[in-house]
Nucleic acid binder design. Structure first.
Ligand code: FES
Ligand code: FES
Lengths: 143, 143
DNA sequence: TGAAAAACATGATCTTTATCATATTTAAGA
DNA sequence: TCTTAAATATGATAAAGATCATGTTTTTCA
């Protein structure tokens, strides 16, 4: 469903959402332990996300990664699209090409609209929404 | 969600379900084209499935793969378990280990119970059920 | 009983994904 | 302005997944 990289990326962004601010930046290698992702791996992912404006960063001493207000209202789907490339989530359960609601493959009804539902959720849910959930005690860390 | 191999395996079994019988066996390489899977790949998968009693086969001239009545009432989950190993489907959306309904990760509610729902469907749906659907015009080939 | 046709078993290669490493650029602060 | 701390860019290696190839066994049938 989601690649490993996407999962890592989401975890990283979430961690930044919880712990960082414009004043409090976080080093890639600092992130690594709490979210349980190899340091150079998360570094690379964050760089890619930065390139697409999903996270913010500054170089040099006192630098690091963080989220600004704009970053916080980005929908999760953007993370997945940048990392996984947008196709993965949309494909049919049997990887058939000419497959849709009106011409469903044999597995289609089993997954129902749940997959497209998940995509919709990813489109509608922002980083901030997840943080709100966590703070409200509806979902849990650590990552 | 499902590996490529599982998808291929399901397609192969479905094709056998539609076209084979104890009297009419089908060669691996004959299967290859209609289900659009490389011949030696589907051959290997079918052998693995055969080893676990999910498909039937006989060697030698006039041999081939087919489904007997017992094969036809096997739930789809068995195919996936044999090919993908059972873990893939059950894991948390963020690959967190201590994650469950009562201790949900931040993405959990987004996928809701839809994933476990899918697993349940795989457990409850047999090969025969899919064939019935196709014959009733509720889902479509080709594969 | 021997030749051929098939599955079966095993392993090799190719491709993608995940992971690691290293040199370069930028910014802070002494 | 020099040193240092960080991200950035790029590429190398490792592991997993997908695909291919080949020899072995079993069965049919002439
Ligand atoms: S058409 Fe195949 S999963 Fe929807
Ligand atoms: S707990 Fe992570 S997806 Fe359910």
């Amino acid at each position: 469903m989601l690649s490993n990289s996407s999962k890592y990326a989401i975890k990283g962004v979430l961690y930044l959402a919880m712990k960082s601010s414009t004043e409090k930046k976080i080093l890639a290698k600092e992130l690594s332990v709490p979210i349980n992702v190899p340091p150079s791996y998360i570094a690379k992912l964050l760089q890619e996300l930065g390139k697409h404006g999903i996270v913010s960063s500054t170089k040099g001493p006192k630098g690091g990664f963080y989220l600004n207000e704009a970053n916080r209202i980005i929908p999760l789907i953007k993370i997945v699209d940048v990392i996984d490339g947008g196709y993965r989530l949309k494909s049919c359960m049997l990887s058939l090409s000419d497959c849709n609601e009106d011409h469903p493959c044999p597995l289609h009804k089993m997954v129902g609209n749940t997959k497209s539902n998940f995509v919709k959720q990813l489109q509608e849910t922002t980083v901030n929404d997840l943080v709100a959930d966590i703070k409200a005690g509806n979902s849990f860390l650590p990552l």
